[in-house]
């Protein structure tokens, strides 16, 4: 599914059946390319992050979490953590490892069951997840196709 269609999806707590927040962004990590975490918009200020491994199921209408305690405040996450907001690929330029810009990331196509990133969609092309080398604060880096 496309990440743009998952934005705004409610995140529900399976123990209380309450809504904790809504999905606002995702973070992506390479080798293999997969969604590492979800950024949530919660009530009140600041952002919270949910690690992908704590997602029980990613349904079409709601994301299920075992318990609300799994949600972490973004302030407690260091930049080295794959779930840190710096690893959000949306809106970042895509650079090949030879320094060529291939457009800006506009969407992420991922498998809702495994979290595997199938494609990165840029303003210019679809880049297979297998070509992803890194997602950082400045750019998304992919291998250079011969």
């Amino acid at each position: 599914m496309l990440f743009s269609s998952a934005q705004g999806t409610a995140v529900m707590d399976l123990t209380t059946a309450e809504t904790i927040g809504t999905v606002s962004a995702c973070t992506v990590t390479p080798t293999p390319a997969r969604v590492a975490g979800l950024r949530l918009r919660t009530r009140g200020r600041g952002h919270h992050t949910l690690d992908w491994k704590d997602v029980r199921s990613f349904g079409p209408d709601a994301v299920a979490v075992e318990e609300a305690g799994r949600i972490r405040d973004e302030k407690d996450i260091g930049p080295g953590d794959p779930a840190h907001a710096a690893h959000d690929p949306l809106g970042k330029p895509v650079l090949t490892e030879t320094g060529l810009c291939k457009g800006t990331v506009v969407d992420v196509e991922f498998d809702a069951r495994s979290g595997r990133v199938v494609h990165l969609l840029t303003t210019e092309q679809r880049i297979p997840g297998g070509e992803l080398l890194g997602v950082g604060g400045y750019a998304v880096v992919v291998t250079a196709r011969p």
Binding site: A86, K92, L95, E97, G99, L133, G134, V135, G136, G137, Y138, A139, V140, V141
Partner: peptide
Amino acid sequence: KKPVVTLAGEAI
């Protein structure tokens, strides 16, 4: 003036 970028996507 070109940015120096690591393979992890950080501009250094």
